[in-house]
Every structure is written in C-alpha cells, then in structure tokens.
Design a protein around this nucleic acid. Structure first.
Lengths: 217, 217
DNA sequence: GCCCAAATCGGTTGTTCGCCCCAATCGTCT
DNA sequence: AGACGATTGGGGCGAACAACCGATTTGGGC
C-alpha cells in the first residue's frame, strides 16, 4: 500500500512546516513537495502529480482559488484540499466551483485534517460542519423554489396549451396555424388566460409560465 | 453538562437494542426512548422531546421519511438522524427535504454514528461521504447552469439598462418616461439589442433576461 | 485630425397586442 | 329543460411592437 503523496501550499513558512511535520508523522502520508506561492504550487503540482494538494486560500498575488482551478485544469487527478482561516460561505462556494475536494478550517483538529486528507485521497469530499450546513441550506432553498410548480389557477387544458405556446414566444397567428385554429380563437383563449390570471401583457405571461415551470430557459 | 437525550426508532428489535446498547455505553449519551414503528416514533418524540432521533428509513407502514417530517413539524427542536442501509441518492435528498439533520449508513463505523449523534445535537449536519459528494455535485450542476450569467454578448451599459426594463414588462413609452428619453431613442436601443442578440420578439428578450439572471420571477 | 462606437432623436410601414363587443356549438350538471 | 363553462369563430380600435430608413452629438483611440 503506497503512501498518500501530499503537496503543501502556504505562504506562511512556519505554519507550512508545522503542517508538514504533522503529516510526515503519519505512516500512510508522505509530503512530496511544498510551495510558498500560487505559481510555485501550480508548477509543483504538475511536476510532482501529488494525490492531494493542501492549499491555503489567502496568499499574496495569485490567490489559492485560482491556483486550485489551474491545478484541476492541468492535473485533474490531484485532489485539492482548501485549508484556510476563513469561515466564509462565499469562499467556500468559490472553492467548490474551483474544483476543491474539501474545505478545512485552520482552527480544526489535526484529526479532522488527517480525515480530510484521506477523504480527498479516496476521491471523497470533506467539508467542515458550517460548510455542510450551508450547502444543505442552499439545497433546501433551491428545492423549495422549484416546488411551486403546478396549480395553474383554474386554466383549462386548452388554455394551458395556448399559454405554453405563447410562452415559447410564438405570436397569435403562428399559434393559430400550429393548432389549425382561427387567429380569433387563439386571441379569445389568450384573453381568457389573461383575465383569469389577472395578467396584462405578454411579458407577464412569460414570467408566469417560467415561474410555474411550464417552459425552460 | 447534561447528556444527549436520544430516541431510537427501528422496526428490527435486535438491531435497535444493539444500537441502544452502544449508545448507552457512551458517557455523554442517554437513550430516553425506543420505538418500533413510525406512529410510535411520532408520539414518543412529542412526549419525550429528545435532542436527537435516530430514525430507520425503511419501516413497514408509514415510512421513516414521513415520520421525520411529522416530527420536525410537531417538535422542531428534535434533530432527526436518518440511519439506513440504503445508499441511494433519492432517499438522501428526500431525507434532507423532510428536515433530517444527517444521514448515516448502517454499514458505517460506530465512531461515525457517535460523531453524527453529537453533530446532530449541536445542530450541525452529518452526512456520509457519498451523500456529501452527491450534494456537492448537485450544487456544481446547478451553479454551472446559473453560470451563464454576465457576458451579455456585447451589450453596452445603456442597452443592458433598457433590456432590464423591457424584461420587467415595461413598454417602450414607459421606459422613455422613466429614463427621460424620447420613445424613439428607447426604440433604437431595443433595435440594437435585438440585432446584437439575434432575438426577434419581446418574448425572446424576456426569456434571455431570465436565463441570464437579469430579473427574478 | 480622423474614425468609430455609443447615445440621442426622428420617420415610415406593416404586424401584433390588448381589450372591448358579439355569437354558435357542445358537454355536463342540476 | 335550463344553466353554465369550454371551445370555437368573428369585428373593431388604439396602442405597442419589429424592422427598416435616416440624422446629430459626444467621447475615446490611433
């Protein structure tokens, strides 16, 4: 069983060396490189192809987030673990989007850090509790937003059909051709729809349709 | 420091008693009740007001998920931890939506279960690795869909401003009044917008604006 | 100084919208 | 049998839209 090859990136030399010492004391972990800046980190990651990159987020010049994105682009099999003092949601989300495999606070216990390194090596994602809560809350917020589907406020089948076509951007005569109807009939349906929904413009109809999930972007 | 009051719900008596034994052996955890069915679980949760409910997801009759939702509705301060053999994404998402504070597999280590119970008691969310990965993947999928923001395909500031107002459903003369411009000017901007975006109707403009996140529902 | 893009203002033409009016047919429910 | 809603069809009118034409002014870059 080969050791987990780790690259440690942090501009604070003392802190970095402390981390390296802690990691080296583990039988299953091997520190294969260190970097004190974002540029060094990228070249080191490409050359050494480590299993896990421990990345500080706040570094002078190029930030750890862009370095993370760069590393994931050039060396996708490297799992980047963000190690930071910032317990901030926006940083955390940025880290996820940059392709990070985890987010650990510097205030965390060493056991958590080791767990995170091993998780990252397995391809799993390690998140600290606040981040997990934020992510779940975000999911629930989005799930709730998507729940207000259905319930077309008393529209008939034909009216929903017409509304669907209107919302696609089709004009009244176009719809008339498509449904083999007189334009007057389509017009009539449209009038009914707008009366029922208390909407008074095509714009409002389209927004309504999108809000109800009738059409996609 | 008072102990963490736990209610254990599982229809498999032997397994349930095993879990109870393991929990009772912890100095900071106290099992205050057990239930072998969803109905019993709900009444027990209301009566005992435990800190944490360990809930099996697959039970005959009313499922653990509906029981979870019911408990969260009637006794919101109880943190429900789903304990199941099913490593299935859909169950996991359903559990989140039902208000669960965590999701632990029965195949997990006892240390993980204890961590989860303590996390739930703190109000944190505990997820097993697969679930975390799924949640992150879901977030990234949604984030990517929403990323096509900005990059308004070469629109000028003024044009974006006009587009924003159009997408709100305002008519050309209304916009002219609002910006103290001639209707002809607004018309001209609108023409430019439609030419640049290769869109040919108000409907298309609104859908474009929504897709780009310019306006909300 | 010249060029170009942006922003402003103006007009014309045909189409579509939004809102009224109306009526005939059909099915369901009472 | 009568009432009601859904669907279909029709006319008219003023406003807005969509597409084209033109123009001037302003500001920045080469």
């Amino acid at each position: 069983m080969s050791k987990i090859r780790v690259l440690v990136v942090d501009d604070h030399t003392l802190f970095r060396q402390g981390i390296v010492g802690l990691l080296e004391s583990q039988p299953d972990i091997e520190v294969v490189g260190q970097a004190g800046g974002a540029k060094d980190a990228i070249t080191a990651a490409v050359e050494l192809s480590p299993d896990v990159v421990l990345m500080d987020i706040s570094m002078p010049g190029t930030t750890g987030l862009t370095a993370t994105a760069e590393i994931k682009a050039r060396s996708p099999k490297a799992n980047v673990l963000i190690l930071t003092i910032h317990d901030r949601e926006d940083y955390f989300y940025q880290a996820l989007r940059a392709g990070a495999s985890g987010y650990v606070l510097k205030g965390a216990d060493i056991r958590d850090l080791l767990d995170a390194v091993r998780s990252a090596n397995r391809g799993d994602v390690y998140l600290y509790p606040t981040a997990t809560k934020a992510l779940v809350a975000d999911y629930l917020r989005r799930a709730k937003a998507g729940e207000d589907r259905a319930g077309y406020d008393g529209l008939t089948d034909r009216e929903r059909e017409i509304l669907h076509l209107i919302a696609q951007g089709k004009t009244t005569p176009e719809i008339a051709v498509e449904l083999s109807l007189s334009p007057h009939t389509v017009q009539s349906h449209r009038d009914h729809i707008m009366t029922k929904l208390d909407l008074h413009s095509k714009a409002a109809l389209i927004k309504y349709a999108i809000a109800k999930g009738l059409i996609e972007l």
